[in-house]
């Protein structure tokens, strides 16, 4: 089910009199129940793309439609509050809070209906991402990178949104932990029917995606590759093997 549409997205940076186009007439659709990878080399514009679809930045031209409605009409703050969750590379948790309090804060901010005791649910979400009660009650500054990222995923889950966006979520993690985080995100897409959009330069992650959107550095546009059988093609196009 189509949940997010990107239409003719255009974005550039103004560097003095020079205009540097980052995204040019980008179109893309995202559905629930699928795991998407936005693939591209550094500086290709994949993070910019994520910042725009997460309403942390605004496009110069084009539209982002959430369930057919322009997010400008919804309101950027409201859209972020009720329709999406973001998982960042550097976790971005509130440091003076515990893991549970971080999750609880997100639940208190969203307008989405959350049934039941929020505190109990927060512990439950953390348990779902394999954070036990004891760890949940520790301040996030005392947690490992993997634990912090799991906390961030639990926070993303807690607000009961359709779309979870992640910017290089395994960028600061070791291989084993990264594997676990990606498995978790895939599970969210497939089992919880979320639309998971992940920005990465890791081909292994792209391999596991249902859809890969590769950013063409020349055309400043996407090349859509459905499923992972196109790995070689992607490699030959953008990476030196």
């Amino acid at each position: 089910m189509k949940v997010l549409e990107v239409k003719d997205l255009h974005y550039f940076y103004q560097d003095g009199t020079r205009k540097r186009v980052i995204l040019d007439k980008v179109n893309a659709d995202f559905e629930t129940g699928k795991f998407y990878s936005i693939l591209g080399e550094s500086g290709s514009g994949k993070t910019t793309f994520l910042s725009i679809i997460s309403a942390l930045d605004t496009p110069k031209e084009g539209k982002i439609l959430f369930r057919g409605k322009d997010i400008r009409e919804i309101g950027y703050e409201k859209y972020r509050r009720n329709n999406i969750s973001i998982v960042f590379q550097n976790y971005n948790l509130i440091q003076y809070m515990t893991a549970m309090e971080n999750v609880l804060t997100a639940m208190e901010i969203t307008d989405n209906e959350i049934k039941g005791n929020k505190k109990k649910l927060a512990y439950q979400f953390l348990e779902d991402v394999e954070i036990d009660r004891e760890t949940a009650d520790r301040r996030v500054s005392r947690l490992s990178g993997g634990e912090q990222q799991r906390t961030a995923i639990a926070r993303a889950l807690s607000t009961n949104v359709d779309i979870i966006m992640a910017d290089e979520p395994t960028g600061n993690l070791d291989h084993e932990t990264s594997e676990g985080i990606i498995e978790l995100l895939i599970k969210l897409a497939h089992e919880k029917n979320k639309c998971v959009i992940i920005v990465t330069h890791d081909l292994n992650i792209a391999d596991k995606s249902d859809v890969v959107l590769s950013l063409d550095p020349k055309a400043r546009n996407f090349i859509r590759k459905d499923n992972n059988i196109v790995r070689k093609q992607v490699e030959s196009e953008f990476y030196e093997v």
């Binding site: 972020r80 973001i86 960042f88 971005n92 901010i109």
Partner: peptide, 8 residues
């Protein structure tokens, strides 16, 4: 920033 990303 976090609070804003959460839609506050």
């Amino acid at each position: 920033g976090i609070l804003m990303s959460l839609g506050t």
